[in-house]
Write a protein that binds this DNA or RNA. Structure first.
Lengths: 253, 253
DNA sequence: TCAAAAGTGTTGTTGTTACACCCATGG
DNA sequence: CCATGGGTGTAACAACAACACTTTTGA
């Protein structure tokens, strides 16, 4: 912010946007909120929700505002973190627009209504998008891929997985989140031990949930801990995209 | 990038800068490159090097260019990664300027020459800055703190520590980097086992280095691995700022 | 032969994996 | 009484911390 102010042509102001990668777990799949664009460029293509950053707001505030405008969700109820900035000079055909992507994680959210200039808004299974690249507007394919990896990594070292579960939830609910996002099957007994032994991760309510079939499960709320100690590591090969093998992998040797 | 284009006053273009947190290990301490500002605002105050992003370049390219301009270093020889964006509307008194911070890690670098509009450029021990907050220009104290935590965390899961060591280096050199950055003492034998067992972290050259005193040490170059498997975790309480206890902590119970 | 740093071996502990087994409920 | 998930126990194994010990050099 110091140098080269004499050569004004070399640097000029730019537009800055935030784009939101909003994940939720729905129907045994990780889903991302996409909108169908109602304007040029990329008219009719699916894209991440987002918008311009205003003069007097921080990026975090812009992300929260866009979240509210696009989904009607109160951002304080979900996990929101900055992912990174994307800055290719040609990423937007309208001109120089850099964007800061945000990762948002939340429990089963209401189906959003389309905004004023979006034709539609939908939850889309992430796996269907990652398998077939090149479908989203702008560089949103890349952003989505980075966000997915970030989300998977976050589950290892933090307690954010609980942000996907409406409270109160069972250990089984929580395990389901891990299985869907990592695309693997986890051993129920070992998983239980780990999450219940991690301090301040789960707070028992004392209540139980009676399922249609099977033994009732203890209910929990989210504890105060935000870091998961010790971490819950994925055993390596969690690189694929499929939720298809969730059932198949269990107990394979 | 879609909504509210009719209310132009709400969002306007902004200036975007990159700021560099350049770390090196020098004289048993982690040092950061700072410049003394030669212009208003914050004239005479110490700040992170950085500059405006130009029209036709990505943020990465801007960071590499600034690195070259401020230090004369070829950025391809060191580790460079995006940290995050800082966007407080009042972070720069000149107006709305958001910045994207970069973390750069490299081996003992040449003492930089001051740029055209910086009075001076110096390596400063990080601990002296973190202990006394509120000394740097803009929000650079916050950026520095975030960068330090990021660097400490990176050592756990990646092989970047080797980026601080001029090749070829010994296991002792590498351990020294960990000790200085984490501010703790590590057990030499256990450290050795971990880094030599991690695949493709260290490549033996077959040579040895003969120190002034003591047994000669095997020399290594950096291997191809960028992820450290298994990770080298700091045992928890690595939160302080001091390198002062490096020697004292060893073998405490 | 001593100091100093490199490097090896060993032991107890902790966390993980794989799996056997028991529990509580609705049909 | 059986299917279905919830939940406990346990033995084999891997990683790790602590630390005793050996090796190789210059002085």
């Amino acid at each position: 912010m110091i140098k080269k102010s004499r050569r004004a042509a070399e640097h000029s102001s730019m537009y800055v946007t935030v784009d939101l990668v909003i994940f939720t777990v729905l129907q045994d799949a990780l889903q991302v909120l996409l909108i169908e664009r109602g304007n040029e460029p990329y008219l009719g293509r699916w894209a991440l929700p987002g918008g311009y950053v205003r003069d007097a707001e921080t990026l975090d505030e812009a992300a929260l505002r866009e979240l509210d405008e696009e989904t009607g969700i109160d951002g304080r109820r979900l996990h929101l973190e900055q992912l990174r900035a994307y800055s290719d000079p040609h990423r937007d055909p309208r001109g120089r627009i850099i964007t800061v992507a945000y990762l948002a994680l939340g429990p089963e959210l209401p189906l959003p209504t389309a905004g004023t200039d979006a034709r539609a808004a939908r939850w889309i299974p992430v796996t269907s998008l990652v398998d077939s690249q090149g479908t989203l507007a702008f560089d949103h394919d890349v952003i989505l891929r980075d966000a997915l990896e970030q989300a998977r990594s976050r589950l290892e070292y933090s307690t954010v997985a609980a942000a996907f579960c409406p409270e109160p939830f069972t250990v089984g609910d929580l395990r389901h989140v891990y299985e869907v996002i990592w695309g693997v099957a986890l051993d129920p007994s070992n998983f239980r031990r780990k999450v219940t032994h991690a301090e301040s991760f789960l707070v028992p309510t004392g209540e139980r949930r009676y399922p249609e079939v099977g033994r009732p499960a203890a209910l929990y709320r989210r504890g105060a801990a935000r870091l998961l100690i010790p971490p819950l590591l994925r055993s390596s090969d969690v690189t694929g995209t499929g939720t298809s093998r969730v059932a198949a992998v269990r107990r394979e040797r």
